[in-house]
């Protein structure tokens, strides 16, 4: 396939992310990468579960955590996963403008999530003096949830750069796999959050 066919395809196939050999490699490679990320988060979850009652002088989990804010955050992130699905749907129909629009909505929802998370952390720090250093549970909590937050931030920067870079030239077989892989990453972040919501907040409140 010549470079011109990749950058200016005469017609877009239905699955542009897997139309080139490089695209297929990226697709598969990214799935493997997410497999490794799963182990990374599993290790962090394991650490948190081992330390979630080691709060030393800090308040216990059920004293601190409030489900209202976390519920809103969950809704924001779950919705953003849905909007990224819409974006990919429009990518497959070769409707670049709609894809960009839905990606922009995804980014805004992600930003909202991140804003609430920062608020939540500062709240714990100022209200309860519950910090990264105040107890083993604090270290484990901020590490697990913070790693996830870091992933969200990275994902936002990634998707935004892709949108800006390709704003003028539209979809082609070279950038379609990049958009697709970024959306996979975004779903993965969402899945991890579902587990954080359950293991950290629900079990922290009830367990």
């Amino acid at each position: 396939m010549s470079h011109d066919d990749v950058l200016n395809p005469k017609e877009m196939p239905h699955e542009p992310e897997k139309a080139t050999h490089e695209g297929q490699n990226k697709f598969l490679g990214f799935w493997f990468f997410l497999g490794g990320e799963t182990v990374l988060f599993a290790s962090l979850f394991g650490t948190y579960l081992a330390l979630n009652e080691s709060n030393a002088q800090d308040p216990t989990r059920s004293e601190m955590f409030g489900l209202e804010l976390v519920f809103i955050m969950t809704m924001l992130l779950l919705t953003s996963s849905l909007t990224s699905v819409y974006a990919m749907y429009h990518m497959k129909n070769n409707d670049f403008k709609k894809m960009q629009t839905w990606l922009a909505i995804t980014v805004f929802l992600g930003l909202g999530f991140l804003g609430f998370e920062i608020y939540e952390f500062t709240h714990y720090i100022h209200e309860y003096e519950f910090t990264f250093q105040s107890s083993a549970m604090g270290s484990a909590f901020y590490t697990l949830v913070g790693f996830h937050g870091g992933h969200v931030l990275f994902g936002l920067l990634w998707i935004t750069s892709l949108m800006l870079r390709n704003a003028k030239r539209g979809l082609n077989l070279y950038n379609a796999p990049k958009f697709y892989v970024a959306s996979l990453y975004w779903h993965f972040i969402d899945v991890v959050w579902v587990f954080i919501f359950t293991v950290v907040y629900l079990m922290g409140k009830v367990g």
Binding site: T47, A50, L51, S54, N55, A56, F132, Q133, S134, S135, A136, M137, G138, S139, A140, T143
Partner: peptide, 21 residues
């Protein structure tokens, strides 16, 4: 990462005094 945080950023994963393990 845990060891790095304990050594360089004052976390308490392995600090038994603060509940570490």
């Amino acid at each position: 990462f845990l060891l790095m945080f304990d050594r360089m950023f004052g976390s308490a994963f392995f600090d038994v005094g603060l509940g570490g393990n």
